[in-house]
Amino acid sequence: ALTKEFCETTLRSDNRSAAANDTRELALVAMDLASTAAASASAKARSALRSSGGRGSKDRDTEYSLRYCLMDYGTVAVVLPACRAVVEEYSPRDFQAPFDYLECAGRVMDAAGDCWQRVSYEDGALKRALWNDAVDVANRANLGQALVEQMVDFP
């Protein structure tokens, strides 16, 4: 669950938050931050997979989790820009159904959550290697979703 502190620290890490006029603009900032985190997590996972030696390595759990998280980060990388465009178009005057805007944030969250959930089952070295990144991506996706919900005034 989001903390107020995480929300503020994350949003304020990007200067655009200070100039934001509404929650739509804050949601866009959060989505960009989620995108950055996913790209960085993906690069790290790819590099870890390469150094694990790929198929046939001793730590198969690590290897599979890396591979699944890479799929999820890839999904985030594809869905986020498309979702950003949807959120960017939002206007309350369009009287569009809230779900038309909420769905994409949910899809980003689903992908981020899948990696988070898979890694949460692991322990030891694997968890140490992947956990912080997985948590970071999931928290930022969650923040983006929370702000899109505020944008459309979804209770």
């Binding site: 929300c7 503020e8 804050l26 923040l143 929370a146």
Partner: peptide
């Protein structure tokens, strides 16, 4: 400010 207000509302949000 907007960030503080939005974060107060976002607090506790779970996916």
């Amino acid at each position: 400010d907007l960030v503080a207000t939005a974060c107060e509302k976002a607090k506790g949000h779970e996916a």
